[in-house]
Design a protein around this nucleic acid. Structure first.
Length: 446
RNA sequence: GACCCGUUCGUCUAGAGGCCUAGGACACUGGCCUUUCACGCCGGCAACACGGGUUCGAAUCCCGUACGGGUCGCCA
């Protein structure tokens, strides 16, 4: 049994969104769970749409997510291999030249559709004689090549969908080389998977029929298809296909919204499975609980609100050492004490800055009538505000006023922060400082 | 249009003929705890898309309908 190798094979024709990232993540987790290798393969055979910028962005997003890869390759560097494979298919009679133009083909499809028939290629090119082909080529017509499908039902045991059967009669012979000489992904991918020794192909169910054709391609090339797993695609929160609104769900936009990678991983690795979605603190935990057999066949909905909630939970469990540098970059002080006070009250790390500003920049206090504030002013301990100040102070206020609980607490919160809800004041007092506390208790905008 | 897949609490799902007066998690919600909030603990609300059939018995099997997703590219 060879070592498990899976791959994520994006084409650099756009930025990663949650759907892509889920595919990448599933592959990554699968590899890590069994101690196999994870490969990044850049599928850039479509050089009209592929750009270095998109490739860089994809790499950046993957790294941001905390995914590392053990191997990498790119299709544009393997053209020779693909041409050799094509040659092999031509020799064995499985690949053939076609001369229809794209217009002719789309016209053909249209009339088939109109007649209520599946738009399957009619293999007209197979009827061409050697002379006709020679004449066309002499006239300067460039052929494209198709792979001849065997008319059987291709079946396999899918890692997530169970027994799958695709009758090939419903499929067109796939084009594998374009008239302009560029290789099509269908062939390139199979050649790569064979050469690299990919053991499992895990991708979205939109590839199911592709897989059926490619299984024949693997065999025609003298190889054997890897294990396959096709998971259901994500839908939006309203049940609509995700593709219609990808813009707002790009990884980059999530990052800008202050969503942490581990929150994204926590959700994407579990959505559509029977395992509970929980906020994890590390990729190791996500890997540990991953099980591809838990995926269902139904289309799960991806709700950005759920991601936000998970993000809040992740943040609530973060230790100061985890994000000390991020806080420093934001200009948030107060150290461990302040962070612990604030982490349960924020949805994004950036929000810590908001509470820090409330503690350190002038605000308008809300002074509630009553004797609590008066007592607070006289009872405020002298000297440096520490972690112990809050306890001593409130105890003194309670003793002086006879009030307790919320009656003591809320007036203080309103006066000190101007808000009715927020982080534990115990951790806020030290950064606020005695002078500002006193001023706010006196109703000054300090 | 054809073909494939799907449809169980708001959400993700468990469920492979009697174990289901349908279980869990998240969300929501009531209470307890607590020097607010949160956490934690205890409780509650809440679903088998619809219609036929098979069967002593169906969420589970069959047929149909509706709805959703996917595929049908010289994209990947």
């Amino acid at each position: 049994m060879s070592k498990t190798l899976v791959r994520f094979a994006p084409s650099p024709t756009g930025n990663l969104h949650v759907g892509n990232m889920r595919t990448a993540l599933v592959n990554y987790l699968y590899a890590r769970k069994v101690g196999g290798d994870f490969m990044l393969r850049i599928d850039d055979t479509d050089d009209e749409r592929s750009t270095p910028e998109f490739e860089a962005s994809i790499r950046h997003d993957l790294q941001w997510m905390g995914m590392d890869w053990d191997q990498e390759d790119r299709q544009s560097s393997r053209i020779d291999r693909y041409m050799a494979a094509l040659d092999q298919l031509v020799q064995s009679g499985r690949a053939y030249k076609c001369f229809e133009t794209q217009d002719e083909l789309s016209l053909k499809r249209k009339s088939q559709l109109a007649a209520g028939r599946p738009p399957v290629y009619d293999r007209a090119a197979l009827k061409l004689t050697a002379e006709e082909i020679a004449a066309k080529e002499a006239a300067g017509e460039k052929p494209h090549y198709r792979f001849m499908l065997e008319d059987v039902t291709v079946a396999w045991n899918d890692l997530v969908r169970g027994d799958v059967a695709v009758p090939m009669s419903s499929l067109s012979d796939p084009v594998i080389l374009r008239a302009d000489g560029r290789v099509i992904y269908t062939l390139a991918s199979v050649v790569d998977d064979m050469d690299h020794g990919v053991t499992h192909i895990l991708r979205g169910e939109d590839h199911t029929t592709n897989s059926a054709a490619q299984i024949q391609l693997f065999e025609a090339l003298g190889g054997k298809a890897p294990e396959m797993g096709h998971f259901a695609l994500l839908a939006g929160a309203d049940g609509e296909g995700l593709s219609k609104r990808l813009g707002s769900l790009s990884i980059a936009s999530l990052r800008e919204d202050g969503i942490l990678p581990i929150a994204v991983a926590s959700l994407l690795a579990r959505i559509g499975t029977s395992d509970p979605v929980e906020a994890r603190q590390s990729m190791g935990q996500v890997i540990e609980g991953f099980d591809i057999t838990r995926f269902g066949r139904a289309t799960p909905r991806f709700d950005p609100e759920e991601l936000k909630m998970i993000n809040s939970k992740v943040i609530g469990g973060l230790d100061y050492t985890d994000i000390a540098s991020a806080l420093e970059a934001l200009g948030v002080g107060g150290g461990d004490l302040f962070w612990h006070a604030v982490r349960g009250n924020i949805n994004r790390i950036e929000d810590a800055k908001m509470w820090y500003d409330i503690a350190t920049q002038p605000i308008t206090p809300q002074i509630e009538a009553g004797n609590v504030i008066t007592a607070a002013i006289t009872a405020l301990p002298e000297g440096e505000m520490t972690a112990e100040t809050w306890g001593q102070w409130t105890k003194a206020i309670m003793a002086a006023t006879g009030e307790k609980g919320r009656a003591v607490f809320m007036p203080l919160r309103l006066a000190l922060t101007g808000q009715s809800a927020g982080p534990e004041l115990k951790g806020v007092l030290p950064v606020m400082g005695r002078d500002r506390i006193l001023a706010r208790l006196n109703g000054e905008a300090a």
